[in-house]
Amino acid sequence: MWSRRLLVAGLAVLAGLWDACVASWFPGSWAGLQVGLLFTVMLAIFSSPERWMIGAIVSGSVASTFLSSNGGLMPLRFFAVGFVISYLSQRLFTNRSLMSVVALSGCATLIDRSVLWFMEHVQIWSGRSLTFESHATLGFAVIWSCIVGATVFFLFVLFSKRFLPLITIGRASKRMGRVRL
């Protein structure tokens, strides 16, 4: 559905703008309160491949347009992380529980940092003048991604009832008369 893809693209633009024009002003580790990558990761976990790809490319492109750092190749990096997380969520962490979402979020941050380190060092070795990305400590970034992952999971539970056990849905459906088994 194009309307949903457009909505994802719009949200990805906002996420990229947040990373570039808001989070970059924060001092120290607070600069790690970024949402572009996590937006892609949440789409990779909960939504379709088309959407996370749109999210990765759009949010990465917008952020890299307005950031001076040039070593991270953000659209490609977000894409790579989205691809790995999408693969993991379909093959290994197939159970959509709070634990799996938190694990995937933390894993995404670790993959992102690894890819960033690799990309920056390849460019340093090739002699390119780099402006490094400012980022939080790894611990802060992992905690932030886990918090975001958990929050998104709880929001899904609250508003979609997608992850409730069947018996709970049955009770809820009787009480609310809205959910069909």
Binding site: V13, L17, W18, A20, C21, V22, A23, S24, W25, F26, P27, W30, S61, V62, S64, T65, F66
Partner: peptide
């Protein structure tokens, strides 16, 4: 060119975002 086009379209919004970001950043400091 893609970057310049994106910058042209989104520049007005970035001013609002950066104003907000700098204010919050100052408060956090």
């Amino acid at each position: 060119p893609v970057r310049d086009f994106g910058a042209r379209v989104l520049l007005p919004i970035t001013r609002v975002f950066s104003g907000f970001g700098s204010a919050v950043g100052s408060a956090l400091r």
